[in-house]
């Protein structure tokens, strides 16, 4: 995991939450580096990146927060987290990852992103195997969005680990 991969995601998440969702209060929580499998929140959007930067991006979110976000995006109330809501929250992950990958491409890291996969069910273990995860909590008035970045520089092939926590300035 490399620090230069972090800021594009934070910038993209802020931009998308502000512009597309219309979030008024948004801040980044403390970062942590996780080596063990993550326990899934209610809803997890999984997107992989393949290219100069490779790995897995997870967006963890509670059902209440996800519902609040899709209500804003689609401008309609949701009584349950139905297929349309699922599609909406997956698209949120897709757009954030897409914008981040565009920023990464500008920095010389071209990568393709996979279509989103949605995992629903709390408590399941999600393991990125030997990729350590940087957990980035994004706090908004609608609730928290947890972005997990398990990414590597394909050229270097190694992980910088702890250094990221020292280097990061947003």
């Amino acid at each position: 995991m490399n620090a230069k991969f972090l800021n594009p995601f934070i910038e993209a998440a802020f931009a998308v939450l502000e512009m597309e969702v219309g979030t008024t209060s948004i801040e980044r929580g403390g970062l942590s580096l996780e080596r063990s499998a993550c326990t899934a929140n209610d809803i997890t959007v999984l997107i992989t990146m393949v290219g100069q930067v490779q790995g897995i991006v997870l967006f963890g979110i509670s059902e209440a927060t996800a519902t609040a976000i899709v209500t804003k995006i689609l401008n309609q109330p949701f009584d349950e987290f139905d297929q349309l809501a699922q599609s909406g929250i997956s698209e949120l992950g897709n757009v954030i990852t897409g914008q981040a990958s565009q920023r990464l491409a500008e920095a010389g890291y071209e990568a393709k992103i996979s279509p989103p996969t949605l995992i629903i069910g709390k408590g399941t273990l999600i393991s990125t195997l030997d990729f350590e995860r940087l957990l980035v909590p994004i706090k908004t008035e609608l609730g928290e969005l947890q972005i997990h970045l398990a990414l590597r520089d394909r050229q270097v092939g190694s992980q910088v680990g702890q250094t990221i926590l020292d280097e990061v300035v947003v």
Binding site: S90, P115, S127, F131
Partner: peptide, 21 residues
């Protein structure tokens, strides 16, 4: 084609949606 690194999910009964595929 290029393939991604694997993700492992451990735990029965969760739902995985490939959306419209």
């Amino acid at each position: 084609t290029d393939i991604s690194v694997p993700t492992l999910i451990v735990g029965k009964g969760s739902t995985i949606s490939t959306l419209d595929i």
